[in-house]
Amino acid sequence: MAEDIKAKLRNYRTAPFDTRFPNTNQTRNCWSNYLDFHRCQKALNAKGVKNAPCDWYKRVYKSLCPIAWVQKWDDQRGEGNFPGKI
């Protein structure tokens, strides 16, 4: 049992420290990584390249952002009224 927990902790990945966002409030970090993921995805899709390099941004924003925010932003993108520049 203890080895199983140790293995899970060893493989656990969360957002690393980002010097652009040194404060405790990570809202801007969440927002920036969400935008960066979709910008990266858009750029690589335009070139016809796989999106694997973009997965890092996705992992970071998934660990920082509340699920409700991400769902709202995804809905806004689908409706065409998303406030960010992608």
Rank of each mutant, 00 (worst) to 15 (best):
W31Y: 14
Q41T: 13
E79Y: 04
N33C: 01
C65V: 01
K85R: 08
R13F: 12
G48L: 00
A43G: 03
I67M: 12
T27A: 14
E3P: 11
K47N: 05
I86E: 15
A43M: 05
Y12H: 13
D4A: 14
G80P: 05
K72D: 10
R77T: 02
K8W: 07
A46F: 04
N23F: 15
E3A: 12
G84Y: 13
Y61K: 00
G48V: 00
Y57K: 02
K47M: 14
L35K: 06
Q41D: 10
F37P: 04
K6R: 11
P66M: 12
N51Q: 06
N33D: 06
V70M: 04
H38Q: 03
A43T: 05
F82T: 12
R39N: 06
K47Y: 07
V60M: 06
N45E: 06
I67H: 11
T14Y: 11
I5P: 06
N25Q: 06
W69L: 08
D36L: 02
P83M: 04
E3Y: 12
K8L: 13
L44P: 06
V60D: 02
K72H: 08
N11T: 11
H38P: 01
W31H: 14
D4N: 13
R28M: 15
K42C: 11
R59K: 15
H38K: 02
P53H: 00
I67T: 14
N29Q: 10
G80M: 00
W31E: 11
N11P: 06
S32L: 15
K85P: 09
K58H: 10
W69A: 08
D4Q: 15
I5E: 04
W73Y: 10
K62W: 07
R13Q: 11
K50T: 13
F21E: 01
C30G: 02
K42T: 13
A43P: 03
Q41N: 10
Y57M: 04
N23R: 03
F37Q: 05
A46G: 03
G78I: 00
V49W: 12
C54R: 01
K42D: 11
S63G: 07
F82E: 14
L64R: 09
P22F: 02
C65T: 02
K85H: 14
A46T: 05
G48N: 00
K58E: 15
C30Q: 01
Q71C: 09
G80F: 01
P22V: 01
T14Q: 08
R39D: 03
F82D: 15
W56S: 14
V70K: 00
L35S: 08
A7L: 07
T19I: 11
Y61G: 04
E3F: 10
L44N: 04
Q76P: 03
W73F: 08
D55H: 12
K62R: 13
L44R: 00
Q71Y: 09
E3T: 11
W31K: 09
W56F: 15
P22H: 02
R20I: 05
F82N: 14
A43C: 01
A46W: 04
D74R: 04
R13T: 10
N29R: 10
N11K: 12
T14D: 09
Y12A: 09
A2K: 03
H38D: 08
T27P: 08
K8R: 04
L35Q: 10
W56P: 09
Y12R: 10
L9G: 12
V60N: 07
N23K: 06
K58P: 09
A7D: 07
C30A: 02
A52K: 07
W56L: 15
S63A: 08
T24P: 11
S63Y: 03
E3R: 12
Q71W: 10
E3S: 15
N45R: 14
